[in-house]
Amino acid sequence: MATIKMTVNGRERSGEAEGRTLLVDFLRQELNLTGTHVGCDTSQCGACVVHVNGEAVKACTMFAAEAEGAEVVTVEGMANPDGSLSVIQQAFQDHHGLQCGFCTPGMIMSAAALLKDNPKPTEAEVRHYLEGNICRCTGYHNIVKAIMAASGQDVSAVAAE
């Protein structure tokens, strides 16, 4: 066991971790940030996506020790400073971009990473970017719509004729 320190959602946090402790377990168990979910354990499903030093990564496939000193942002840190929903969060709510909600935190984090690099993605770019995030409920239609809406684009024509 070693003490690991990192900045999580803007706050200095520390906790105990073994070498083999995964970042997702550290966040969930040491820091009680249970919004980051474990869906598959094998870096396929994307339910555990968080940002480390500004980049989207799968927290189930990174050791906590490797995030020592890093800036980590989880879904709990995505709301506006006043607590209101961010544009992306509000878009998922408004456009029904969720059903069971288990994939939603990872989707939000991936969407935020996409829009940071590509503020006005095409629909095809959104689909391509989300290939590491599985949703079993929605069929993705409303997720794509939500992200397009969050980027300030008209969604009335998303995937429709």
Binding site: L33, A79, F92, L98, Q99, G101, T104
Partner: peptide
Amino acid sequence: LPHDSGPLHVTGQARYVDDIPT
């Protein structure tokens, strides 16, 4: 109307069994 749990899901506050404080 949107899903009632939407605001909880998008902020990571919705609790599943494994999220209930142990």
